[in-house]
Design a protein around this nucleic acid. Structure first.
Lengths: 208, 208
DNA sequence: CAAAATCTCCTGTTTTTAGGGGATTTTTTT
DNA sequence: AAAAAAATCCCCTAAAAACAGGAGATTTTG
């Protein structure tokens, strides 16, 4: 039986080396290459399509999140395992939305990596225990974060930038009264009574 | 001549593997062991003292920053090279304060690591280019943080809590006009024109 | 399709902030 | 002790935001 082919994308050279070293003795897995940026990854895939991509979500200045989407669009059969130091909901969420089949933290042991690879190849989803915990914790915490509409988010940003209602209205080509209404709704949703606490809350919840 | 002995402390197994792989062919360097937490590091050092310690600043729940301090207190002759994904001033600063001789990012290449090891062994300080840039940027940025008086900080807090001038005045047993004056000064010092951007700035600068 | 949500705008009133000054007392620093 | 900085207070005006309540138009969704 042919070994499973693995390609590594990570801007940390030592991580590439580390994964290679760890998978060296797995005879059903074969690392067929690696890249440290999006461009050389795409370029490799044009030549050859591995079964699994181990991908760091943070590629220096580039974003693995974008790369993930691109790769999945072009080669949907390639399974992507996200690899990251960051056990943060927003990252995990975005990666999974963009088509990743699993998310591992970089403290993963050899066995976890191989298990994950086999699991995602069977079509499964593999989230490490820590990652699962984070997802759960965030779901709990979501009660605090009011659900804002697109327009409300937009206006919150502009308010945070220090624009007055008039300026916001001009920028969005809507009436001042509309902006006023949205602000009222924002205050209500955040359950606060003025701009100061609104912005404070929004900042604390990392919404601005 | 005896090779330089190196010990690795990192909770990411794949990073340990990676460094080992990278240093394997350097015949004047020898990796004599590794640890994934503070306790086993200390325990190893009781048996044997390497020349250099490559140490991740983030050891899962533990802090490499503390470990650095301990090791340097017990074995000042051991040179410590901090290793981190985070190019953040606070971490860099604390590590150097705690006796580290250098700070590398995990995207370091083989040559950078070996150069750093040799350099710190000679008593030098080795900060990677990115790290140096960050340090400089922070020094620049410090000018942004306005120096507030005690009263101003107090009032900033209360404004952020959503109190009106009247409420603040009542709470601090001062007149409304005084609060007003302080707020005007706050706006001036932050160089903003309304409460929204004031709070946003203060939040960004972690002053509230 | 019908219901729900979102976005839009309106008329008012009241409260709060911002902007422009000026001035005295208290505290801190040199 | 003198100078500088901080804290206190006042005036006035204008602008902005908050509060109340209603309502039509457009999307989104079940």
């Amino acid at each position: 039986m042919n070994p499973i082919t693995v390609f590594i994308v990570d801007d940390h050279f030592m991580v590439i080396e580390g994964i290679q070293a760890m998978l060296q003795n797995e005879n059903d897995l074969q690392v067929v290459g690696h890249a440290s940026n999006a461009a050389s990854c795409i370029s490799f895939l044009k030549q050859q399509q591995p079964d699994v991509l181990l991908m760091d979500i943070n590629l220096g200045t580039e974003s693995g999140i974008e790369l993930c989407k691109e790769v999945k669009t072009m080669y949907p059969q390639i399974m992507i395992l996200a690899l990251s130091t960051f056990n943060q909901f927003s990252f995990i969420d975005k990666m999974m939305e963009n088509g990743a089949s699993g998310y591992l933290l970089k403290n993963a042991e050899r066995t976890e990596i191989t298990e994950a690879i086999h699991h995602v190849l069977k079509g499964g989803t593999y989230l490490s225990r820590e990652v699962t915990d984070t997802m759960k914790a965030v779901e709990e915490g979501k009660k605090d974060k009011p659900a804002l509409t697109r327009r409300e988010k937009e206006i919150l940003e502009l308010v945070a930038d220090g624009l007055t209602n008039q300026e916001i209205a001009d920028q969005l080509f809507i009436g001042v009264s509309t902006v006023d209404t949205h602000r009222k709704n924002l205050l209500a949703k955040f359950n606060v009574k003025n701009t100061a606490s609104l912005i404070r809350m929004a900042a604390k919840l990392q919404m601005i």
